[in-house]
Computed example of a mutant assay.
Amino acid sequence: MAVTSPYDGLTPEAIKAEMLADLQVKGVDVDHREGSYANTLVSVAAYQLYKLYQLFPSLLSMAFPDEDAGEYIDKNAAQLGMTRAPGKKATATIKFTGTDGTVIPAGTALYAPESGLQYLTTGDTMIISGMAEATAEAAEIGSDYNLPAGYITSMYVNVAGVVTVTNSTAAAGGVNEESDADFYARYHDRRTLPITSGNKNHYITWATETTGVSYANCLPLWNGNGTVKVVIAGDNRGPVDEVIRSACAAHIEDERPIGATVTVVSVAEREIPVTAKVTLASGYTTEQVGDQVEAAINELLKKQPFGEESTIPFSRMLACLLQCPGVADYSTFTVDGGTAAITLKAEDAAVVGTITVTA
């Protein structure tokens, strides 16, 4: 949200006019017509004041940052010893086939033809018995490099003796740099939530300190005394890969109090299919209504508490249908195959599944 200031409407001319009027009120009898000595002096001063007033809104962001404050989030968070998560590069296991004795040197450039994303091998390897394996690292940080197995299949410069190239496992571990919104949320939680001695908030803080973890919740005593479960998610409350989950678990293990048994799990995607038979409003199609229903239900799902069991009444889902501009009325509506409330587990990352709309 943009910061407003009582000085936003001021112009150099308005400031100048006010200063000249004030001189008259004080009885200063000088010529202040345009081009006069007094007018010129006041014009310079008014313009400098105008430039100063323009800085006032940014001063609020410096002292009281929000998610739009950019670098000032970093500066304020640094006072608490917090830094923005820098992002990570994805890695993948690459399988080469070809002539025995062929050496594939470290730094060999590979890429995925569909996307053009580039990867570099991290060490030398040699083909023995027709095959060799090497680890390849993405050329840049980012989750875009987390490609499925079988996508990295080409070399920028062919190596004599190599016949085929493929990533035998999915590329994983790539994470974008922490966004302003996510970093501000973490900074705000650190300032506002009581964090002491391994309490619930402490586990959430440790989890979100891990690169790639944007959301976390802690379930104390979930499996008896001394047990703690931490549920984590990445961007948009989506699942994280095993590389990120393991890194989060290792970080919490280093920080946790002695005696606690901690389980760290990623959310798993849960699709919720929807069917509806409707009377269309004039000018709308079933495809448009499907898009409207999907957007409305996704917005409802985003409002559910993260990392804990929750129940969504069927009436709330039905309201998502009835609020669609393209729906005049309906005759049937089912969610997840029925007309009952939807129960979400702590580890569910709920998304709208197949939407079937008929008229």
Results as ranks from 00 to 15, higher is better:
A90K: 02
A90S: 12
A90W: 01
A90Q: 01
A90T: 01
T91K: 12
T91Q: 13
T91A: 00
A92P: 06
A92Q: 03
A92T: 12
T93V: 13
I94R: 02
I94S: 02
K95V: 14
K95E: 14
T97Y: 05
T97Q: 06
T97P: 11
T97G: 04
G98H: 04
G98M: 03
G98T: 01
G98K: 02
T99L: 14
T99E: 14
D100T: 02
D100I: 01
D100S: 07
G101A: 09
G101W: 02
G101Q: 05
G101T: 05
G101H: 00
T102Y: 07
T102G: 04
T102F: 07
T102S: 05
T102P: 11
V103E: 10
V103K: 13
I104D: 04
I104C: 04
I104T: 06
I104V: 15
P105I: 00
P105R: 01
P105H: 01
A106I: 02
A106H: 08
A106L: 01
A106P: 01
A106R: 12
A106T: 09
G107I: 02
G107F: 07
G107Y: 09
T108Y: 09
A109F: 12
A109T: 15
A109C: 13
A109M: 13
L110A: 05
L110I: 06
L110G: 05
Y111R: 08
Y111M: 10
Y111D: 10
A112L: 04
A112T: 13
A112G: 04
P113S: 08
P113H: 06
P113Y: 02
P113Q: 07
E114W: 01
E114N: 14
S115Q: 07
S115T: 15
S115Y: 13
G116D: 06
G116L: 06
G116N: 10
G116S: 11
G116R: 09
G116P: 14
L117S: 09
L117I: 13
L117F: 14
L117V: 11
Q118F: 10
Q118D: 14
Q118K: 15
Q118G: 10
Q118A: 15
Q118P: 00
Q118H: 12
Y119N: 08
Y119C: 10
Y119P: 08
Y119D: 07
Y119V: 08
Y119I: 09
Y119K: 03
Y119G: 10
Y119T: 10
Y119E: 05
Y119M: 08
L120G: 10
L120V: 06
L120Q: 12
L120N: 14
T121D: 06
T121K: 04
T121S: 11
T121Q: 05
T121R: 03
T122S: 12
T122F: 09
T122P: 05
G123A: 15
G123W: 13
G123N: 11
G123K: 10
G123T: 08
D124H: 08
D124Q: 09
D124G: 08
D124N: 15
D124E: 13
T125W: 05
T125N: 06
T125K: 02
M126G: 00
M126L: 11
M126R: 11
M126P: 00
I127L: 08
I127F: 12
I128P: 00
I128W: 02
S129M: 12
S129W: 03
S129V: 04
S129A: 15
S129E: 15
S129I: 00
G130K: 06
G130W: 10
G130Y: 09
